[in-house]
Nucleic acid binder design. Structure first.
Lengths: 231, 231
DNA sequence: CGGATCATTGACTGGTGTCAACTTAGGTGG
DNA sequence: CCACCTAAGTTGACACCAGTCAATGATCCG
């Protein structure tokens, strides 16, 4: 069936906690799905029908507020877990930011399997605790920091995750974002205009360069980190 | 030893998942502590040495930012779990907002016990997932809502949790907050002056009354809820 | 009664949102 | 290959909300 043995996230997703024998049963519940950029797989407020592991691509967790604006709660990458086990409804949507593939499981079946496999539940608990920590940090950023600091913190995180690792202690970091200005605005709780102005400000301060829409080159990582810390 | 049988949160804290026989072993690891208002039991950035259940009082989870301001991540009540199991450090402080008592366990011992008691881990996972949901909702509030909406949402939540339940479908709700204006400001990511002005605004709009510093009477719950939704 | 703490109010500033115009990049079709 | 078209991003002018600093008022406690 599903070729877990060859899965790119076999040893990093929560499946890592399963023995080969258990993995067979587990994988028979699962199904691979591919998503195109912009496509959703879970919808805010709807029944929590499935959960899954990201095997490729980048997805965002987002909520829509009454006034039409969107807020992104976080971004998830390969080997991350998505969905809401042990609960009836999903509090946020899951939308692909790039073409993506996800190994999905019916939620009820997953719940049952997890209940009888403590090691899997333990790994899931660990993940959930880490996600809570990250969400709390993000909350502080959004509650207290200026637009400049938010952009800087975002770029620092992205540079760490996405930069070319050719020469690790490189003084300048280049990376290509998988999303546009509106996505950044939704993530940081800002408007697209403010995002644009802050990026321009950082460029004029000589801290970074933007050769094109998607690419960023951090010229002065220290100064960028300093921006992320203040106000 | 510890009289779990008479514990006020025996059936609502995570201990609910333990059989009486297991409870004996569990309770021998634990120790009751009392905290005075303002006293901390866990410190941001320090080693995660203990976890526990709140048995009485109200505590806040807070982080200090570089600029000296505090941000409260959330408020926890009796039967809630506090601390960071399965992790080396605590990302936030836990401070008593009223005199409080907490049933504490050494973190390492708790981790070991949980590992061998799947039902306990399952309950803990459920709690953590719920806490994540709440934190995400709170994040949206802080990222997108106006000061007025934040205050209103806060008061709605407090009124639901603390109001006199003498006559449930009562048109006006009265409750007494266990904390001052600065606490509210830290929780909502605002300044104390803004909190004060918004409360005054709601009072002048006839939505609530403030007979004294701590007490609130919601005269128009619908209007308050409407404020919480907009902008 | 006096002092300390907490809360409220006012005047002013500044950062971010809003609305609108303009520019750039990228893609399509002639 | 170029012209055009569209979507995305940038920039500007302005308004407004919330922060800051400062003064005043209320409450609690000795």
């Amino acid at each position: 069936m599903t070729a877990c043995a060859q899965c790119s996230v076999r040893d990093t997703a929560i499946c890592q906690s399963l023995m080969p024998a258990e993995l067979g049963e587990f994988s028979r519940m699962g199904r691979h799905r591919t998503l195109e950029r912009g496509q959703a797989i879970l919808w805010q407020g709807e029944q929590s029908l499935l959960v899954g592991n990201i095997t490729d691509g980048v997805v965002k967790l987002s909520v829509a507020t009454q006034d039409g604006q969107g807020q992104t709660l976080g971004v998830r990458y390969p080997s991350d877990f998505i969905g809401r086990p042990f609960g009836e409804i999903t509090s946020h949507s899951v939308v692909a930011m790039t073409d993506a593939s996800i190994c999905t499981f019916p939620r009820a079946a997953f719940d049952g399997f997890a209940h009888t496999h403590p090691a899997l539940e333990h790994t899931l608990l660990q993940r959930t605790l880490e996600e809570l920590d990250r969400t709390q940090q993000w909350l502080v950023l959004l509650a207290r920091k200026s637009a400049r600091a938010r952009i800087a913190a975002f770029l620092v995180e992205m540079s760490q995750r996405l930069s070319d690792h050719g020469s690790p202690p490189s003084p300048s970091l280049r990376f290509s974002l998988p999303f546009g200005r509106q996505d950044i605005a939704d993530l940081l709780g800002l408007t697209i205009e403010t995002v644009s102005r802050q990026i321009t400000g950082l460029r004029k301060a000589g801290i970074l360069e933007t050769p094109n829409r998607r690419d960023f080159v951090v010229l002065d990582p220290e100064a960028l980190a300093a921006c992320a810390e203040e106000g």
